[in-house]
């Protein structure tokens, strides 16, 4: 019995070995090195051990970082529910279409992921350009006055969320459309006979049936939202007046413009811890099923 167990163990390890070696070399070791770096004051020339000073400074003295922290939480709070629920709804509409139409719509939603965040962000910056942008042009056609978009404190945050939303909606839609096809038609038919309308069917059949997918998508979307960076880097540079700044953006600036590597490493570790906590919570919620 033990021998069989041992053999199982060895085969299991053998199958996992290539992956483990690669992950340990190129993921785990860098993470440990990053953590080590976060305990030092490391710049271009210096490398001094300072313990947890970087962390205390981030939470007590760095006002910009605290703003980035709250902004990031806001991004997560806005983006995750909206992406999850809207993609769920859109997918439920898509599955009622024919096979070809469904595939067509799925492609349209997935295009921003294929075209890469950089191109898409450039185009969005043109759309929202106050002088030559299409958004203001359309508003003027209807007789309104153009908005500030990226140059206004409140509107800039909204714009970044909009851009990020439309860039991220593709994958969840594709996942949900597939998952919806897996829910037994029989449930719907039974509900119809019982007199439940489409809305009730949605709440009592569709949503529960999609729970596992929803959790998977929630985690991935949250991870991306916590790490939101490219739209901010290309569109607003954190402005105006730091209203759209995020933790990743601050990390990049601290590391590669200010050359404060240790400080930036601390930011990275905090981000890792926050995302992990969020994900653990999600997994626990899933276990409850």
């Amino acid at each position: 019995m033990n021998r069989k167990r041992l053999k199982q163990d060895m085969i299991g390890i053998a199958y996992s070995l290539p992956s483990l070696i690669l992950i340990i070399c190129f993921m785990v070791i860098p993470i440990i090195m990053t953590f080590d770096m976060s305990l030092h004051n490391r710049t271009l020339k210096k490398d001094v051990f300072i313990g947890f000073d970087n962390y205390t400074r981030l939470f007590t003295k760095d006002i910009t970082y605290q703003k980035a922290l709250t902004n990031t939480f806001l991004y997560v709070l806005v983006l995750v529910p909206s992406i999850v629920f809207i993609s769920m709804y859109l997918s439920s509409v898509i599955v009622r279409k024919s096979q070809k139409a469904g595939a067509f719509y799925r492609g349209l939603f997935y295009i921003p992921t294929i075209a890469s965040g950089v191109t898409v962000s450039i185009i969005w910056s043109w759309v929202f350009n106050p002088v030559t942008g299409i958004a203001n042009y359309i508003i003027s056609v209807f007789g309104g006055k153009g908005l500030e978009w990226f140059s206004g404190r409140s509107t800039a945050f909204m714009c970044v969320c909009i851009v990020s939303f439309f860039c991220s909606i593709g994958q969840p839609v594709v996942l949900y459309t597939a998952a919806l096809n897996g829910i037994d038609r029989g449930y719907y038919e039974a509900a119809e006979i019982d007199g439940a309308g489409p809305f009730k069917q949605f709440i009592h059949i569709t949503v529960p049936g999609l729970r596992p997918t929803t959790l998977y998508i929630t985690i991935i979307t949250a991870v991306n939202a916590f790490q939101i960076f490219i739209p901010i880097q290309l569109l607003t540079s954190g402005g105006p007046v730091n209203s759209t700044i995020s933790m990743m953006f601050m990390l990049y600036k601290t590391a590669f413009t200010d050359f404060k590597f240790g400080y930036a490493a601390a930011m990275g570790v905090i981000l890792l811890i926050l995302i992990s906590i969020f994900s653990v919570v999600q997994f626990i919620l899933q276990r409850k099923e």
Binding site: P130, V131, E148, W149, F150, S151, A156, S237, P240
Partner: peptide, 9 residues
């Protein structure tokens, strides 16, 4: 000044 200058790079 051209509009949107606050966010213009």
């Amino acid at each position: 000044a051209a509009p949107g200058g606050a966010a213009l790079k």
